[in-house]
C-alpha cells in the first residue's frame, strides 16, 4: 500500500479530533450539571478542561499544517484536513461556551436558584447528543447521520425560546430574580450556540464526503 504513513497520519488526526470532541461533550455535561447541582468544584473542573482544549487545538492545528506542508494533499485528503481545521475551531468555541456556563455556576454560588432547572438540562442533553452524532458522522463519514443530527437543532431552538419566555415571566413577577434569570438566559444562549456549532460540524462532514458546501443552519 503506497502512502501508508500518510494514511496513518490522517487516521491519527481524526482520532485526535474525536478525542477533543469527547472532552467537549464532557465539558457540556459537567458545566450544566454543575449549574443544576450548584457544584462549584465540578465547575472548576470544567475550567481546567478548557485549558486542555486550548492546547489540543493548537496541537491538532499544527498537525494539519504539517500534513499540508509535507504531503501536498489533494481531493478528499485535502478536504479531510481542511474539515479537521474547521472542526477544531468549532470545538474550541463550544468549549469556550462551556467555560462560560461554568462561570455562571461560580457566580450564582450558593444563592438559591430561582427555579429548579429542567429545560436547560434538556437542551443540554439534546445538544450533547447532537455533538456525539456530529463526531460519529465525522468518524464514519456518515452524511445521513449529519443531516439527521441537524434536525435536532430545531428542537434545541424551540426549547431555547421556551426557556427565554419562562425566565421573562419570572423577571416580570419579581425584579429580584432579574440578575440570576439573565444569567440563566445566557446559559440558554450558550447551549443554543453550541448546537449551532454541532451543525457546522455536520456541514463540514457533508463537504468532506461530497465536496459540496451545504448550509444546514437556517
Amino acid at each position: 500500500m503506497i502512502r501508508q504513513s500518510f494514511d496513518d497520519s490522517l487516521g491519527s488526526l481524526v482520532q485526535d479530533i474525536l478525542r477533543m470532541g469527547s472532552i467537549v461533550e464532557n465539558m457540556l455535561d459537567n458545566s450544566v450539571e454543575s449549574l443544576k447541582l450548584q457544584d462549584l468544584k465540578l465547575a472548576q473542573e470544567v475550567l481546567k478542561m478548557e485549558n486542555e482544549i486550548d492546547s489540543l487545538e493548537q496541537e491538532i492545528e499544527h498537525k494539519c499544517l504539517r500534513l499540508i506542508a509535507t504531503q501536498q494533499p489533494f481531493a478528499k485528503d485535502l478536504r479531510r484536513i481542511t474539515a479537521g481545521f474547521k472542526i477544531i475551531t468549532d470545538l474550541e468555541r463550544m468549549a469556550d461556551y462551556c467555560e462560560d456556563i461554568a462561570k455562571v455556576t461560580l457566580r450564582i454560588g450558593a444563592e438559591d436558584l430561582i427555579k429548579p432547572l429542567i429545560d436547560i438540562p434538556r437542551m443540554s442533553l439534546l445538544t450533547q447528543r447532537m455533538l456525539k452524532d456530529a463526531l460519529d458522522s465525522f468518524a464514519y463519514e456518515n452524511i445521513e447521520l449529519a443531516y439527521q443530527m441537524c434536525k435536532d437543532d430545531d428542537e434545541v431552538d424551540h426549547i431555547y425560546a421556551q426557556v427565554i419566555r419562562e425566565l421573562l415571566t419570572y423577571m416580570m413577577e419579581n425584579p429580584k430574580t432579574i440578575s440570576q434569570a439573565t444569567s440563566l438566559m445566557f446559559v440558554g444562549r450558550y447551549i443554543e450556540r453550541i448546537a449551532d456549532h454541532a451543525t457546522n460540524i455536520g456541514e463540514r462532514v457533508i463537504f468532506l464526503v461530497t465536496g459540496i458546501k451545504k448550509e444546514l443552519n437556517d
Partner: peptide
C-alpha cells in the same frame, strides 16, 4: 480535478494511492 474529482481513478492518482 484537484478538490473534488468525479472519478475514483482520478482521485486515487492525484492523492498518490494509484497502483
Amino acid at each position: 480535478i484537484f478538490t473534488n474529482p468525479r472519478h475514483q481513478q482520478t482521485e486515487d492518482y492525484i492523492t498518490g494511492r494509484f497502483g
